[in-house]
């Protein structure tokens, strides 16, 4: 079994003291090692943001790409070599704003990888601007006075677009977050995990305390995660009750559809792009077809 140490690197993370990303990193290392996944065959794909620095802090393969482009980068990697475990991870601004179009289309494609959003409801790296999930009461550099924008509901978006594994967790609960990661990674197909993450520097609304008072575990509450309508209702719940309660856990899980990397005609025939023998490609048949 891969122990956590093999993922250690010499460098120390440089997040603010008390940042939720420390918990997320600990959960991620625990999840991968507990799943016994080889670090050589793991690719952590991130974007740009505080949280997106995470690939540097665990020793697997990684790609720290562009702001908002985690999903296509991850899809390209997985489709080129489905043997790899691919995990995309990045901020709420990255994935839900800059990368919004990819988030809408990822469930359609249903490539087998996991997407984790570090949802601190703020643009942290750029020092505190409104993000798609910024709550109305959170004053920040780009919403100093008026509450101009509504708050996006990424869990509901993921659900209605056909994501077949949708879960949420709280970064302060490392054990539960690791558990959710393990479930998401084990799911065959595009899986989505929204991690509620306190930001000690730029978000004084959604604090550790705030989350601890509100989060409750869906599984303990008897939620039926195979029921889509129930899942959607749970995703809507905080938006309807003014965020008095915040469900975490697995909202929805459905294993009926095979992932793209199993049904794509090329991959279904066992032809893996990354290991294709290209030493001497014969184009004779292609020229012949054009006769």
């Amino acid at each position: 079994m891969a122990n956590v140490e093999v993922f250690n690197v010499n460098e120390k993370p440089q997040w603010c003291a008390g940042c939720g990303d420390y918990g997320i990193l600990a959960s991620l290392k625990a999840a991968i090692s507990e799943l016994n996944i080889n670090p050589n065959e793991t690719v952590i794909v991130s974007g740009i943001g505080c949280g997106s620095k995470i690939p540097h802090y665990l020793r697997s393969y990684g790609y720290e790409g562009l702001h908002g482009r985690i999903l296509p980068l991850a899809e390209g990697i997985k489709m080129a070599n489905p043997k790899l475990t691919v995990i995309g991870i990045g901020g709420d601004g990255d994935g839900l704003s800059e990368g919004g179009n990819h988030f809408l289309h990822a469930p359609r494609k249903n490539v087998n990888y996991t997407y984790i959003v570090q949802d601190n409801h703020i643009y942290a790296l750029t020092t505190g601007q409104t993000s798609p999930t910024t709550p109305k009461g959170l004053k920040n550099k780009t919403s100093p006075t008026e509450e101009l924008y509504e708050q996006m509901n990424p869990l509901a978006v993921a659900l209605v677009n056909g994501t077949r594994f949708v879960a949420a967790s709280f970064a302060g609960n490392i054990k539960h977050t690791a558990e959710m990661m393990k479930k998401a990674i084990s799911h065959k197909g595009f899986s989505y995990l929204n991690i509620y993450q306190p930001c000690v520097s730029w978000n004084n609304v959604n604090t550790y305390q705030w989350y601890m008072q509100r989060c409750y575990d869906l599984q303990q509450a008897g939620h039926d995660s195979s029921n889509f309508d129930a899942a959607l209702a749970k995703a809507m719940e905080p938006y309807r009750n003014g965020f008095e309660k915040l469900p975490v856990g697995i909202f929805y899980e459905n294993n009926e559809r095979k992932p793209l990397d199993e049904i794509h005609p090329t991959l279904a025939k066992g032809m893996i792009p990354a290991s294709k023998d290209i030493t001497n490609i014969d184009i004779g048949k292609m020229l012949e077809e054009a006769l």
Binding site: Y63, L73, P273
Partner: peptide, 19 residues
Amino acid sequence: EDEISAANMAIGASFAGSR
């Protein structure tokens, strides 16, 4: 879904070792 995706996907696939 768009050209941004097309470019990033291809780069991902190249990183993974395919042409």
